[in-house]
Write a protein that binds this DNA or RNA. Sequence first.
DNA 1: CTGTTAGCGCTTTCAC
DNA 2: GTGAAAGCGCTAACAG
Lengths: 369, 369
Amino acid sequence: MTTPPPRSVPTMRDVAALAGVSTMTVSRVLHDDPRITEETKRRVRAAVRKLGYLRNDTARNLRIGRGAGAVGLVVNNLANPFYSQLALGVGQAAEQQGLTVMLANSAGDDEREARLISDLMSRRVVGIIISPASDEHSHLAARALHGTPVVLVARPPSGIDADCVLVDDFAGTREACKRLIERGHTKIGFIGLPSTVWTGAERLRGFRAALADAGIRSDRRYIRYQESDVAAAEKTVRSLLAVSDPPTALFAANNRNMIGALRAVSRAGNPVALAGFDDFELADMLDLPLIVVSYDPVGLGREAARLLLERVVPGDADLPPRRVTVPTTVVEYGPPTGRLHLPGVATADGGGTASRPGRQASRRRAPVR
Amino acid sequence: MTTPPPRSVPTMRDVAALAGVSTMTVSRVLHDDPRITEETKRRVRAAVRKLGYLRNDTARNLRIGRGAGAVGLVVNNLANPFYSQLALGVGQAAEQQGLTVMLANSAGDDEREARLISDLMSRRVVGIIISPASDEHSHLAARALHGTPVVLVARPPSGIDADCVLVDDFAGTREACKRLIERGHTKIGFIGLPSTVWTGAERLRGFRAALADAGIRSDRRYIRYQESDVAAAEKTVRSLLAVSDPPTALFAANNRNMIGALRAVSRAGNPVALAGFDDFELADMLDLPLIVVSYDPVGLGREAARLLLERVVPGDADLPPRRVTVPTTVVEYGPPTGRLHLPGVATADGGGTASRPGRQASRRRAPVR
DNA sequence: CTGTTAGCGCTTTCAC
DNA sequence: GTGAAAGCGCTAACAG
């Protein structure tokens, strides 16, 4: 009502002065030190309330050597729901330890990533969770980071020691491709990730394994590597479908590629069956047969944070590097009423359709996001 | 090769000692002070490199009074793509000023929000960007925040002075609903947001305006208020469609409600036309007629950051509160080939279909995300 | 029970 | 050109 708008934040000294005590007493009251008189506590608390005092955690953390009391999170592409889900999980776990999340988007650029890491280090984050843009991890070595713990997400460390949380890329892809093959496909295209990305390599390996399992020879012409970007993926898929004797089915190595493939296939009016890594919202509403490799990105984030925090919170520092792999499930979506607008081989090949038990059952799984 | 793994981050003193100078000289070299000899600079820089020294910005910021050198971003629901896009925009703008983003998810909970704000204040962020969970904004008053600037996203300040960036909720909704009416609908349901949210109120107002413009009396039974959550929205829509004489069209007040409505409508096999706020990925692939109110969430985030940074960076502190409204576009999606699997009134009502010029043209707008 | 001193890592100010 | 002293806001350690 009467107090003028404050231009600067009050400090402990202001509180101490108002309460007529020393800053140390204020500090003790804030920590609820039992040795302080109730009467003193009351006076101090009144002063705190009056001034709207809030402890300066920046100063506090400096003093107690906790750095910024934040964990750094570096993601490739925040526009990809996978990463926002991941951030959600990391945030949940960090909050429980009273840590904030400093979020940075590398946009998949190696140099940018290095700059961001260095920035986070300057800010003295207690640890870093990162989905590295490439397999060049030397800037993440304990040496480079002065022992600040790092957890890699979705890629194993290459040439360095670090914890990581992985998705079972290989098994998931293999199983999904197996299902395509069971539906009668032998000519399957693969819209992969850049070959430098481990995830991409693993998913390609799973794809090849599925083909090999079925005795199908893989065809080079059907394999494309692709930055993860919807528009680019669409273009790539269009060109892939334009080869002579084109594939009858496609496996998209991630989220973004899958959406691009969807657009390309739908636009072409081509009866191509689709499978891909990463479940996505509305997959069940697309009214076309679809196989996705699903997992829980929020859980992945929580898990990453857990690994990190185990090294930060008590003192359990030098544990050996750990590797956690989260499982995947293959989910098959299909048209609600069996009408196939983009008839996949499910109808074209006859036969196999009846013997797919999981299909209707799994059509409407609880969406992860 | 030989150096043992460092357990603690080197300080300026370590560098000074190694270079045989004072910390002051190190500091000057880092700032590239012209008065320092080239020779000294060389020695210091060598020491910096050797130790892998990185300035402690926490300490630096404390000294120079820049708080944490971070902007706080509080969102309602990071799982909603709108907010991750927003975060992307904020991050882009913040980075240009050498600031990081501290991200926090309020989950739409007022109390949580208050705690998060207080936490960010403790960490001395230079400013806060927030999409408040409700219209209770007293905890965001300049008084409560000791003058730390705040920018509200998607809601105008209520009872406080603050900058805000808004979406043109009213005009967008009105136009979208107008299109539904032009397609022959008179019984239109509204899946709104909780009435305490300004956005919700505005969109409802737009809805009512569109009805009034067309001389349609609005029917209470058709209006629902709804926390923004896909599963809950689906349930709500189901119950809405179960009333006697149910609506033939629905307007969903946001992203989440729209997805829920999609599921409910599709499951019911009901020929209900859909419109809603927020464009979303795959809207054009759903193979059903759809009207969405579209805008650019990344731009919204950039704009919010711009407003905030104008108060932070130079000293342009006490500007008057500003209000920026970003425009919306109405986009109509429809089945690529005109096959309607969930025939909306577009076919059911005959008539209006031919006179919809923008339709094919706008079907495949550049997706915002 | 409460206060004083010192110092976290840096920079500002004033000396030399 | 470089250094010494003081202090940003807080707390650990020792007094009393």
